[in-house]
Amino acid sequence: MADEILFYTNPMSRGRIARWMLEEIGAPYRTEVLQFGTTMKDDSYKAVNPMGKVPTIVHGKKTVTECAAICAYLADAFPEKGLAPSPADRADYYRWMFFAAGPLEAAVSNRALGFEVPPGRERMIGYGSFADVMDALEFALRSNSYIAGEKFSAADVYVGSQIGWGLQFGSIEKRPAFEQYFGRIALRDAYQRAVEKDDLAASAL
């Protein structure tokens, strides 16, 4: 696809995940940095993303929000980059991408807010308990180099970003499997470029 990619973000947000994915595909994109509470809530931007949050990408006539969706969309839009398995081999790719978008995100966010699932009420919440989520995530990485097997994919951008952020800020347990995994994917050139660009943008805020 030759259409321009417009990237709405703030460097102090989950937009860092989308930035990494954009660097992985290597297609030209234009960045619009929005501010929390002001330009992010303007009517002009809410016409693009009614949630008034980032990241959002606009690719030609298509608008995509939510980090997991952006990663999956870009992998499919640029298949020559090999960032999504073939359709027949996507079981683990989908499994762990959606696990991170659902149970992992919810468990980590709730814990950061001081909410713990009351004992005996685990069945009422999708992730069960924080410990259940950490154990499942470790299970995914125990015997594979990457989250969906032995090849890096868009799922690693999404899941890996959450692990890296969690390790940095203490919201994910520092288990060896997590540290080794993130240490490996953080060496990627695209990740390093993304961090450099976002850090530079953050310094200008």
Rank of each mutant, 00 (worst) to 15 (best):
A2E: 12
A2D: 12
Y8R: 04
T9W: 08
T9G: 03
P11Q: 07
M12E: 13
S13V: 06
G15H: 04
G15E: 02
G15M: 02
R16Q: 07
R16Y: 11
I17D: 05
A18H: 10
W20S: 02
W20D: 04
M21W: 06
M21L: 07
L22N: 01
E23N: 10
G26A: 06
Y29L: 05
R30K: 11
E32N: 09
V33F: 06
V33R: 09
L34I: 05
F36I: 06
F36W: 05
G37K: 11
T39F: 05
K46G: 02
K46T: 09
V48Q: 08
P50H: 01
P50A: 02
M51C: 14
K53I: 07
T56V: 12
I57A: 13
V58Y: 03
G60Q: 15
K62V: 14
K62A: 13
V64T: 14
V64R: 12
T65K: 09
I70Y: 00
C71E: 09
A72Y: 11
A72H: 14
F78N: 08
K81M: 12
K81P: 00
G82D: 05
G82M: 02
G82F: 03
G82W: 00
L83C: 04
R90W: 08
Y94R: 07
R95F: 03
F99H: 01
F99M: 04
A101F: 07
G102F: 00
G102Y: 02
P103L: 11
P103V: 07
A106E: 11
A107D: 06
A107N: 01
V108N: 05
S109Y: 11
N110E: 13
R111K: 15
R111T: 12
L113E: 12
G114N: 08
E116A: 07
V117H: 08
P118R: 01
P119Q: 07
R123P: 07
I125G: 09
G126D: 13
Y127F: 15
G128I: 00
A131P: 01
A131V: 14
D132P: 08
D132I: 11
V133I: 12
M134R: 14
M134N: 06
A140M: 10
A140I: 03
R142V: 13
S143R: 15
N144A: 15
N144D: 14
S145G: 15
A148M: 08
K151I: 15
F152K: 01
A154M: 01
D156S: 03
V157D: 07
V157E: 08
Y158S: 07
S161R: 05
S161C: 05
I163G: 03
G164D: 09
F169L: 09
G170F: 00
S171Q: 15
S171R: 12
I172R: 02
I172F: 06
I172V: 03
K174H: 12
K174A: 13
R175T: 01
P176W: 05
P176N: 03
A177E: 11
F178S: 03
Q180M: 07
Q180G: 03
Y181T: 06
G183I: 03
R184V: 04
R184Q: 06
I185Y: 04
L187G: 14
D189Y: 04
A190D: 05
A190F: 00
A194K: 07
V195D: 02
E196A: 13
E196S: 10
K197T: 12
K197M: 10
D198S: 04
D199G: 11
L200P: 01
A201G: 06
A201P: 02
A202I: 08
A202G: 07
S203K: 10
A204G: 10
A204E: 13
A204T: 14
A204H: 12
